[in-house]
Design a protein around this nucleic acid. Structure first.
Lengths: 255, 255
DNA sequence: GTAGCGTATTTCGCATACGAAATTCGCATC
DNA sequence: GATGCGAATTTCGTATGCGAAATACGCTAC
């Protein structure tokens, strides 16, 4: 038996990443970075073949993604990637404002020097990404900074909820950041939030975070004038792996 | 979750409730009203047999419930009903305070006379349930009132998120309401929130809702002193259906 | 050319089959 | 009686098979 003595405890037996989890991660990543376009039709057989696994784990992953509004039932047959709808993103931003505000407030009450150092590094990374001009780097830095706040806030449910919301936002942000009118004060605002948190100024951090989220929401609303970038787009899906994998790979023994 | 077209001429084709959804509803209901005790081990075969279906839809339902923290991986083999942990409920109440506050504020800005009538009826029902003294009726009335606010708020994502949180809270509330020290001002506070919403007083509604949630959280913390009502309890599960169903029922043709 | 209709194909939901990991039980040993 | 080891059992993850519903296709009639 796999008894592994650590210095104090025995380490928790972690169930290895199952194909379900891998499929979930892969599909979600593809949706969020746009490789699976909004409105694109999702085919279980197709996805399974691309990943070299059977339909079963793909179906389970899709069930979860459906519950999280990343994919949507067409009513007839099959699923589509959730369209980028203005209304829905408005909903997300409304919640985000409340939750970011809460997170910043809590983080300000719990921020340790170690946390502060980490936060400062994340802001520095963000400014770096801003200079580089690469959109995906910017989005990632943005997301990391805000999820850092959630982690410092010490509320796991808040962190998990925001992880989901951010994956929704990521889909829209690519469009926003390509928009020439996009805001350039983002990392100054982040810096201000950070310093309020580090200074244990809960009210200040909360207020700044709410204002930041509100502005971000406005920017997205401006860049997404169409009701939705919908099913009509029907761009060819380039997902996951273009070549169907040999498809036979018994269990996880070969991983 | 599902966006609903208002006065559209043709009605949307709704895919009938699949066994996955039925299994999800059944298991979630059993968890929330305590028929499946916190910490109880969940067996796919067993659940499937009780419901007279195969493991496949049960497994998919459990995947979703796991993502929503209603069940938890044991790490080794199988799942358990999530224990009622004080820390986790604290997390839920922290979020609830922020979201109820938001919901009340939005609802106050959108409340129509028709909504108001509905809300008043719900409060009346709640007072009735309070007189009856039946714990499950009280919980249901409480939940309905707060979800009414979310619906009036007009943010579908908020409503769905609060639906999940309330199902977590329901599990704890049975214990709280049986506690003789439980608060009796609940429906007075509800009434005050309602009247602020009806009067379009966003700030007042928001403030009262936040205070209400904060008090509710304190009460739960008081009634759940133990770190968790955990796996040790191991009470016999009386779930769903005690007799294993004949188990053969081809497809959904017989539904 | 278009409309109507019947067939073929796609694709999902669900059931079942199979292998692997891990627990449980039994048995032998000290 | 307690302990160590191996076989039987449990139970999950995954693959595959099957039937149904809906779409897509093709054919015929006008």
């Amino acid at each position: 038996m796999s008894f592994r003595m650590r210095n104090s405890n025995v380490d928790i037996v972690k169930a290895g990443p199952t194909l379900i989890e891998q499929a979930y991660d892969a599909i979600l990543a593809a949706i969020c970075d746009g490789r699976l376009a909004p409105g694109a039709r999702l085919n279980q057989d197709d996805l399974a073949a691309r990943m070299g696994i059977s339909r079963q784990p793909v179906g389970q992953a899709l069930s979860v993604l459906k519950a999280q509004s990343f994919v949507r039932d067409t009513g007839r047959r099959g699923l589509i990637v959730a369209p980028l709808e203005r209304e829905f993103l408005h909903s997300v931003y409304e919640l985000r404002e409340a939750l970011d505000s809460l997170a910043a407030s809590l983080a300000a009450q719990r921020c340790t020097p170690r946390d502060a150092a980490e936060g400062r590094k994340l802001v520095a990374d963000g400014r770096e990404a801003e200079k580089s001009g690469r959109v995906d780097s910017l989005i990632e830095a943005d997301m990391r900074f805000h999820l850092w706040i959630c982690r410092v806030a010490g509320n796991p449910l808040l962190a998990e909820t925001m992880r989901l919301y951010w994956n929704h936002l990521r889909r829209a942000m690519a469009a926003v950041l390509r928009d020439p009118r996009h805001r350039t004060e983002i990392w100054d605002e982040h810096d201000a939030i950070l310093e309020a948190i580090v200074a244990n100024d809960a009210a200040g951090a909360s207020h700044r975070a709410a204002a930041h989220a509100r502005e971000a929401g406005k920017t997205v609303a401006r860049s997404l004038p169409a009701t939705h970038v919908g099913p009509g787009t029907a761009r060819r899906v380039v997902a996951l792996s273009d070549e169907p994998q040999p498809a036979s790979r018994r269990h996880k023994s070969s991983s």
